[in-house]
Amino acid sequence: MNSLFGYDPKDTWLHRLTGATKMLAFLGISVIVMASYDTRFVCAVMLASIILFAQAKIRWHQISLVVKIITIFAVVNLLLVFVFSPQYGVGLYGSKHVLLNAGYFTITQEQLFYELNLALKYIVTVPLALIFLITTNPSEFAASLNKLHVSYRISYSVALALRYIPDVQANFRQISLAQQARGYELSRKAKLFQRLKGMGQILMPLIFTSLDRIDQISQAMELRRFGTGKRRTWYMDQPLRTPDWLVLVGVVVIILVGLVLFKVNGGRFYNPFR
């Protein structure tokens, strides 16, 4: 079963961190890494990100499909940056080292360096996001959100969504294969109208199965008195423990280092061409 992503229970220290810790950590690191263009800093965080990813014991087959999709879109994004602004790097770094003269599409070291920085940001954030998704129990995540003062009803909605993403994926694939077995063509060979009709034939049962499940789930929840109180207790709740605090301190340190480098570099950009 190659679902795109979903919780995979294991016993590593990353699994034992609370969802709130991981959420705050990834939010903080995402912001500082996206804001900074200091290649040395981003590379250091990337290394830490990859080490953490290895420690989460995530298996390649669990994530290979999502990684391929992300890679394709990342490459397309980098190409589009080049197509629309091939001299953006020249403007940023204030110099021009031409590698290949080609008029509008002249290739420079500055532009390649800029796009290298963009690519590194992907390599930082994707492993961290996958760690969060695969090592966090949706029930525990809902408890964590509630601890951060999100209404327990809303946080429970999020938990439901995270829990059912693999089911939606499985349903989509199952329905798609069933309809193709009945003769609906979805590949490039079919005409536009046929493919749209085929997509409609997938969406209709996908939504029907989701709505069916909505009825079952909401009735079961009400029978168990969900939503009758202003507050609730959480079975999966757990307090912040020493590893959680250490992780949060580590994230603060990373953010401070990033901010200090802004000052040292005289801006967000580390300029090796100066």
Binding site: L4, S157, L162, V168, R195, S210, D215, S218, G227
Partner: peptide, 28 residues
């Protein structure tokens, strides 16, 4: 909010996220 609405929100959110990974349709 009613429980059914919350559940519908949760599952439609899952569908929303799931559609992000549905294969795009390329047309010539």
């Amino acid at each position: 909010m009613q429980t059914k609405t919350l559940t519908r929100m949760g599952l439609l959110l899952a569908v929303l996220i799931g559609l992000a990974f549905a294969p795009p349709i390329t047309i010539g």
